[in-house]
Every structure is written in structure tokens, then in C-alpha cells.
């Protein structure tokens, strides 16, 4: 039924250049992502952009040195848990604002004094919300990417297993 096809190998034939450049760049890319998340309320960036950049650092590691290397750093179970934790953190932060009179869901319950404007610790709950969103977006995108790339291997495994099963049934009957 299925036509035989070549499986893309897991980054094994990536040259020395790609691997070396990845080793140098993965740190700065991660740092840039974390910077975007933390300073999202002062400079351009924010949870979404930072999360995507962090995820792309792990995607670069996956592409250059294989899936095993990146899954050791950031396994699928951890990614799915962090995905849920980020969303729950966001919800809890919104819910915390409803505690007292005159406040509402997602009200900013930490006031920023005039002197603290344009510094890192300003904007009330916004930096925390940015961190929650960053965790959420990074882990969701990395999880989706890992699932999509791991599928090639799964396909091959499944075909092997199904062939073996078919053989057994034939030999049984």
C-alpha cells in the first residue's frame, strides 16, 4: 500500500561546521530569548517572542546534533508538564487579582511607583505573566516540533512491527 521512502536521518550527516556553529550559538540564542521574556514590558519582545526564540534554540540543537541530544535537555514529559504549568500560572495570576473589592479578573494588583518606571521591576504582575507565557509558548512549540519530527522514526518502527505481526499470522495459519 505504502510506497517505500527514504527516512531523513537524525542529523547524523550534519557537517562539523554546523555542529560547531550550533555549539557556539545555542547559548546566545537562549540568552536572547530569556532577555526578551524578562524585558518584555520595557523593550520590544514579550512572552510570545521570547518563547518562540527559546523553542528555536532547542530546535536548532535537534536539527544539528540529533533528537537524543535535545531530548536529554528538554524531554517530552517535561515539555508537556511545563506547557500546563505555564497556562495554570497565567490563570492563577488572573485569579489572584479578584481577591479584594474593586478588583476584577486579571486586574494588576501590584502598583508601580513613579520612580520605578522603566526598570526591570515595574509593571506589576506583567513580568510574571510574561514568564508564564514564555514557558508556555516555548514548551508548546518545542513539544509540537518534537512530535512532528519523531514521527518519522515511529513510522518506521510501526511498519517493522506490523510486518512482523503479519508474518506471524501467516505462519500461524
Amino acid at each position: 500500500m505504502n510506497t517505500p521512502r527514504k527516512l531523513p536521518d537524525e542529523g547524523l550527516d550534519m557537517g562539523v561546521t554546523v555542529k560547531t556553529v550550533t555549539r557556539w550559538l545555542k547559548g546566545p540564542i537562549l540568552l536572547f530569548g530569556i532577555y526578551l521574556v524578562l524585558y518584555g514590558h520595557i523593550t520590544p519582545g514579550g512572552g510570545f517572542g521570547g518563547g518562540v526564540v527559546i523553542a528555536s534554540a532547542f530546535i536548532l540543537i535537534t536539527l544539528a546534533s540529533g533528537e537524543r541530544a535535545s531530548l536529554q535537555l528538554f524531554s517530552k514529559g517535561v515539555a508537556s508538564r511545563l506547557d500546563s504549568i505555564g497556562l495554570l500560572m497565567f490563570l492563577v495570576l488572573g485569579w489572584l487579582g479578584t481577591g479584594w473589592a474593586g478588583s476584577y479578573f486579571f486586574s494588576n494588583f501590584i502598583n508601580t511607583p513613579e520612580a520605578a518606571q522603566f526598570t526591570l521591576l515595574s509593571g506589576g504582575i506583567m513580568p510574571i505573566m510574561n514568564i508564564a507565557l514564555g514557558i508556555k509558548v516555548a514548551s508548546a512549540i518545542f513539544l509540537v516540533f518534537t512530535l512532528l519530527t519523531a514521527f518519522h522514526i515511529v513510522e518506521q518502527e510501526l511498519e517493522d512491527r506490523l510486518c512482523a505481526e503479519a508474518h506471524q499470522q501467516e505462519s500461524n495459519s
Binding site: 510570545f48 518562540v52 508548546a140 512549540i141 509540537v144 516540533f145 512530535l147 512532528l148 514521527f151
Partner: peptide
């Protein structure tokens, strides 16, 4: 648009998963 772009990526991944 910022939220729409990120949602677009998630939906794209879902559609590609269906195609695969």
C-alpha cells in the same frame, strides 16, 4: 496580530500533523 501569529503557528502544526 501578535497573538494571531502565534495561534497561526499552533494551527499550522496541527494541520501538518493531519497531513503527515
Amino acid at each position: 496580530v501578535l497573538t494571531a501569529i502565534v495561534i497561526g503557528l499552533g494551527v499550522l502544526a496541527l494541520m501538518v500533523a493531519f497531513c503527515v
